[in-house]
Amino acid sequence: MIEEIGEWIHQVNSLHKEVRRPCSVLAEHFNGFYSPDFLKTAFFVVTDEIPKPDFPELREAGLGDFIDMNVGGITYNDTYYVKKEVANELRLHFHELVHVLQWRELGPQGFIERYIREIQDFGYDNAPLEKMAYALDGHYQSKGRHLSVERFVRENV
């Protein structure tokens, strides 16, 4: 199933390659948190509908609530997708960029396996990868001191 999800993600990202935008367009907002080099290699797509893998195996694994959850954004490897109506919310971009870093640190298979296991074991709200992203986006939103999110994720994932 992990391989099938990985292939699906690759397909989705390939289909959107022409419309994705580099996160370097957000550099002025995230200065002091994300390096310019990282932002050049992370991308986002503004979309009407968030793409999600709706495989029967995922529902059988107890992830139906996650698949059906109404979210403003989702990350697949180096690209995240945001709904049009929330595309200007910097906190959402900040949050999804944390996930891009988690994907990089864990690798695609490692991220997918761990994310699924955490959702199963803890639920979405208490999944450690999500808690990390929410804590960091909250820090940003509250105008907390600058910190290297890249280093933080690398040291804490």
Results as ranks from 00 to 15, higher is better:
Tyr124Trp: 14
Ala135Val: 07
Leu92Phe: 06
Val46Tyr: 02
Ile119Tyr: 06
Gly110Pro: 03
Tyr80Gln: 03
His29Lys: 09
Asp48Pro: 04
Pro36Glu: 15
Ser24Ile: 14
Tyr34Thr: 02
Gln109Lys: 12
Leu106Asn: 00
Lys131Phe: 03
Lys131Cys: 11
Val25Tyr: 03
Ala135Arg: 15
Ile112Lys: 01
Tyr80His: 06
Ala87Ser: 15
Asn126Phe: 11
Val86Ser: 04
Asp37Gly: 02
Phe111Arg: 01
Phe66Arg: 06
Tyr76Gln: 03
Ala27Arg: 00
Val100Asn: 11
Lys83His: 07
Phe44Val: 02
Ser142Phe: 12
Thr47Asp: 10
Lys52Met: 15
Arg117Asp: 10
Asp48Lys: 14
Pro108Tyr: 03
His146Asp: 08
Asn156Ala: 08
Val45Asn: 08
Glu49Asn: 10
Asn126Gln: 13
His139Cys: 06
Val19Glu: 12
Gly72Val: 04
Leu106Asp: 01
Phe152Pro: 03
Ala27Glu: 10
Asp68Pro: 04
Ile9Asp: 03
Tyr134Gln: 09
Phe152Ile: 13
Ala87Asp: 07
Glu105Thr: 09
Glu7Asp: 13
Phe122Met: 05
Tyr76Ile: 04
Asn126Trp: 08
Ile9Thr: 09
Glu89Gly: 02
Glu60Asp: 13
Asp65Thr: 13
Val157Ala: 10
Leu63Asn: 06
Leu15Trp: 09
Arg59Cys: 01
Asn156Asp: 03
Ile2Cys: 03
Arg154Leu: 14
Asn31Cys: 07
Ala87Pro: 00
Ile2Gln: 06
Thr75Arg: 02
Phe38Lys: 04
Arg21Gln: 14
Ile119Arg: 06
Trp8Gln: 10
Phe66Leu: 13
Asn31Leu: 09
Ser142Arg: 15
Pro51Asn: 08
His146Gln: 14
Ser14Gln: 15
Val149Lys: 05
Asp54Thr: 09
Ile119Met: 09
Thr79Pro: 05
Lys143Leu: 12
Ala135Met: 12
Leu97Met: 15
Leu106Thr: 00
Gln109Asp: 08
Asp78Met: 01
Phe33Ala: 00
Glu105Leu: 03
Tyr80Thr: 01
Thr75Pro: 00
Asn88Met: 06
Ile112Glu: 02
Arg20Met: 12
Asp54Val: 09
Arg117Ser: 12
Glu7Lys: 15
Lys84Leu: 07
Asn70His: 12
Asn126Glu: 15
Asp37Val: 10
Met132Gln: 14
Asp78Asn: 14
Phe66Ile: 05
